[in-house]
Design a protein around this nucleic acid. Sequence first.
DNA 1: TAGACGTGGTT
DNA 2: TAACCAAGTCT
Length: 345
Amino acid sequence: MREGLAQVLLDWYDDNARVMPWRVGPADRARGQRPDPYRIWLSEIMLQQTTVAAVRDYFVRFTNRWPRVEDLAAAEDAEVMGAWAGLGYYARARNLLRCARVVAEELDGRFPDTEAELLKLPGIGPYTAAAVAAIAFDRPAAVVDGNVERVMSRLRLIETPLPDAKPAIRQAAETLTPIERPGDYAQAVMDLGATICTPRNPSCMLCPWRSPCAAREAGVAETLPRKAPKKAKPVRRGYLYLAQRGDDWLLEQRPDKGLLGGMLAFPTSDWGEAPTPAPPALADWRDAGEVRHTFTHFHLILRVMQADAPGPPSRGAFAPLDPKTLPTVFRKAHKLVTQGRTGRD
DNA sequence: TAGACGTGGTT
DNA sequence: TAACCAAGTCT
């Protein structure tokens, strides 16, 4: 009897599953071990638009510090934002806390086990709802992330550029999702996309789906999925102010909405074509150099101004600083003056 | 609905 | 070096 495509992939996964701190591997899963929904949810939030390599240490740190969703829900906002610093997309951390508090306080500490209910929680969209339902609760939910878009567009030779191809891709993904072992299947497709069906130089010779992959057959696997061209990033400039009093630094918390929202920060001017200087205290400001940083949609060049004996600040407050709790752009500025390097991106 | 929203590794 | 890419969500 011929095995279905899902079964072929599950066989491949049984031998090739990657080991990850939040994952219950196929062998343990077969013995009946169940994943912890809290850990699956946390890993999925961290993994949004973020590589496994970048997430690993943060995940271990978070779960050591906050082993259960109730622990995370009880944490101070600033503690969690500081622990998230460096991972990026900080709205995820704000929504993470909101979600943990809803689950702890209104759902008795238990995550919902259906896509529809998960989707109602902050920070959980279509992908994450499906991933948690499938991986944590073994529901036959179709996960569609960047890996799956690539795998499906190749397997079924979907040549329509993204995002117009999304309905066809979802259709293909839902059709393939099995009733048996849907959680392992979800992880298997993503492992396939991450290790075999890669964006460039896919290892088609090693692929369990090399037959019947339509794009491989047509010799165009590497060109899929097609995507609309990206827009060029503009350059913005600004001033950043480093004021010290002994071991204390002048710091402020950024507003909850917008770029780097809710994060600890050094005071800056506005960022634009011709920024207006905005020193946060009367002082003898000196030019300490330049920091360059690239965000998702623009390049930033910051003129770093430094002062040692500033007057009373008009914004922020002086406090001890652990630079690890700063977003990367501010960590670069701190490093510039503490290690005397020119910050390049 | 298209744009906002980070970062670090790879090519 | 500049561009591209990675387990998306929100507005």
